[in-house]
Simulated scan of single mutants.
Amino acid sequence: MRERFWERFALEELTQEEWEALCDGCGKCCLVKMEDPDSGDVATLNVACRLLDIGSCRCSDYDNRFQRVPECTQLGLDNLHDFHWLPHSCAYRRLAEGRKLASWHPLRSGSDRRMHERRMSVRHFAVSETEVDAADYEEHIIEVIPLDDRR
């Protein structure tokens, strides 16, 4: 990868390896979301995809995730703005909005240790969807993003 690529190149100029490296590994995109069909509001739950290793905050079967979890979606340049629910801390969102990577981001800090210490990952609160009955999902809502708050 090119040195400090995230500061020197636009998202459109990144290699696939650099694009993948932007992921801080927080696991927030792997949390279950529910969209209200009437209002369009999106609720985020503390319930994580069954493939998320909550301890490492990484997918346990990244290469086969789309086959194993059909609702898993791939973030790319062509659909980045469709992911309006990405947290403000997300590197993809930050760079797309013209902001810099957070100081705790693994590319800046050298490891994911600071991210976890600052509780920026789901490691400290997520539960696997294998442990929660879908009928109880409403009890696990941690954030609601109203349709009119999308940026």
Rank of each mutant, 00 (worst) to 15 (best):
R2G: 11
E3M: 03
R4L: 15
E7K: 13
F9T: 04
L11P: 02
E12D: 08
E13W: 03
E13Y: 10
E17G: 06
E18G: 04
E18Y: 04
W19F: 12
W19T: 02
D24Q: 03
D24N: 08
G25I: 14
K28T: 14
C29K: 05
C29F: 06
C29A: 12
C30Q: 04
L31E: 07
L31P: 05
V32E: 00
K33R: 13
D36R: 04
D36N: 15
D38S: 11
A43V: 14
A43C: 14
T44K: 01
L45W: 06
N46P: 01
L51V: 06
L52Q: 07
L52Y: 02
D53Y: 01
I54G: 05
I54N: 03
I54D: 06
C59W: 00
S60C: 07
D61C: 00
D61N: 07
D61V: 05
Y62E: 15
D63N: 08
Q67R: 04
Q67E: 15
Q67C: 01
C72V: 14
Q74L: 09
L75P: 02
G76N: 13
G76A: 08
L77V: 13
N79V: 13
H81A: 11
H81Y: 13
D82S: 13
D82I: 10
P87H: 02
H88E: 06
S89K: 03
S89H: 08
R93P: 01
A96T: 05
R99I: 04
K100Y: 05
L101E: 10
L101H: 09
A102P: 00
A102T: 09
S103A: 15
S103V: 12
W104C: 09
H105P: 04
H105M: 07
L107G: 09
L107R: 00
S109M: 14
G110A: 15
G110K: 09
G110Q: 13
S111E: 08
E117N: 09
R118I: 13
R118E: 13
R119Y: 11
M120G: 12
S121C: 09
V122G: 03
V122N: 05
R123D: 09
R123T: 12
H124V: 10
A126K: 03
A126Y: 02
E129Y: 04
E131I: 03
V132E: 06
V132K: 00
V132Y: 04
V132M: 01
V132T: 08
D133L: 02
A135Y: 02
D136T: 11
D136V: 09
D136S: 11
D136L: 12
D136I: 05
Y137R: 00
Y137F: 15
E139L: 12
E139F: 02
H140M: 11
I141F: 14
I142Q: 10
V144Q: 11
P146R: 11
P146G: 04
D148A: 02
D148Q: 12
D149A: 15
R150S: 08
R150C: 10
